[in-house]
């Protein structure tokens, strides 16, 4: 096991290096030149070339990569070209906001996706089933920005109500803080939970046709016990796997919801950075996301290896 862990840990190094190359070059491939964009400000230099030199963007691309990589290995993601603020500091400030939104969305999503999925399965081909499936289709197909804008615009017109749209830190107003997250989290969960609901329904239908369920029914066991204790418990295992996949969708959706609901999280940070072609910020955020996935995979591999000895001896 020890040998396996060391081998896997060593493999992480070239993987991360490759990730860094991809992250660095992808951001540079986006059309548009930050120097040209920044020149609009006239604040930074006398002409485009002077500004390019000031930002260090006049050097060959591999030199720029080398400088950036040497900073990264020292735990420094550089600073924003526009604001001159350290990228790591900005990420640290914004990460909790996105994490909170994502966590709330997952909790909300599970809270209704599982019961509705189960209900749709046990009442298959009834009105309840059709309603649940229609809801899932709407959740999957209606774009996030549209749902969010419609809710904000029409609630403010018809009821004179909108959720608090100005970010308040938890320490300054706990209720205000939480109430600002509720609506975006629900909307985010609405999209993400649709596939969980559909999968729960499909798996439940499969499980409900198993022999042991029929046995349970024939023993005269109550519906609740059959469904919850015998069927759901077995059906839900693959659902947990898909929740992991939904995290990516939630992170993507957060970009839109953070912008519309005024939440200063990573999504909005990323959007601003892309619009401004702020290379260090884009690189830092992408590197962080990619590294997270690399480490999660490493963790999963190790867990598998721990659980199944055949893997570590391969």
């Amino acid at each position: 096991m020890q040998q396996y862990v060391i081998k896997r840990l060593l493999l992480v190094v070239p993987t991360l290096l490759l990730v860094s190359v991809i992250v660095f070059s992808l951001t540079r491939l986006i059309p548009g030149d930050v120097v040209v964009l920044m020149f609009e400000e006239k604040a930074y230099a006398e002409d485009l070339e002077a500004l390019r030199a000031k930002l260090g963007l006049n050097q060959p691309i591999y030199v720029q990569y080398g400088i950036w990589l040497s900073q990264v290995v020292q735990g420094n993601l550089g600073e924003s070209l526009w604001t001159k603020r350290p990228v790591l500091e900005e990420i640290a400030r914004r990460l909790p906001v996105s994490f909170e939104l994502g966590a709330m969305a997952i909790v909300f999503g599970l809270c209704w996706a599982l019961p509705i999925g189960v209900l749709a399965a046990i009442r298959q081909d009834t009105m309840k089933d059709y309603a649940a499936r229609s809801l899932a289709i709407i959740g999957l197909s209606a774009p996030g920005f549209w749902k969010a804008t419609m809710i904000i615009v029409f609630c403010s017109i018809w009821f004179g109500w909108a959720p608090p749209l100005q970010f308040t830190p938890f320490t300054q107003g706990p209720w205000q803080h939480i109430s600002q997250f509720i609506l975006p989290a629900i909307l985010l969960a609405f999209g993400a939970s649709a596939s969980i609901m559909r999968l729960t329904r499909a798996l439940m239908l499969e499980v409900l046709r198993q022999d042991y369920i029929r046995t349970a029914w024939s023993k005269g066991m109550g519906e609740r016990r059959v469904v919850v204790k015998h069927a759901l418990k077995n059906a839900v295992i693959p659902v947990i796997t898909i929740i992991g996949l939904e995290i990516g969708q939630i992170a993507g959706g957060a970009v839109v919801f953070e912008t519309i609901f005024g939440l200063p999280g990573m999504g909005r940070f990323m959007l601003d950075a892309i619009n401004q072609r702020d290379y260090p910020v884009m690189q830092g955020l992408n590197l962080l996301a990619a590294s997270t996935i690399v480490f999660v995979n490493l963790l999963v591999d190790m867990t598998y290896a721990y659980l199944d000895p055949r893997i570590r001896y391969q």
């Binding site: 609630c155 403010s156 912008t259």
Partner: peptide, 10 residues
């Protein structure tokens, strides 16, 4: 407030 619709709703 980056979004126009959000600004108006506020």
């Amino acid at each position: 407030v980056p979004d126009e619709s959000t600004g108006l709703a506020m």
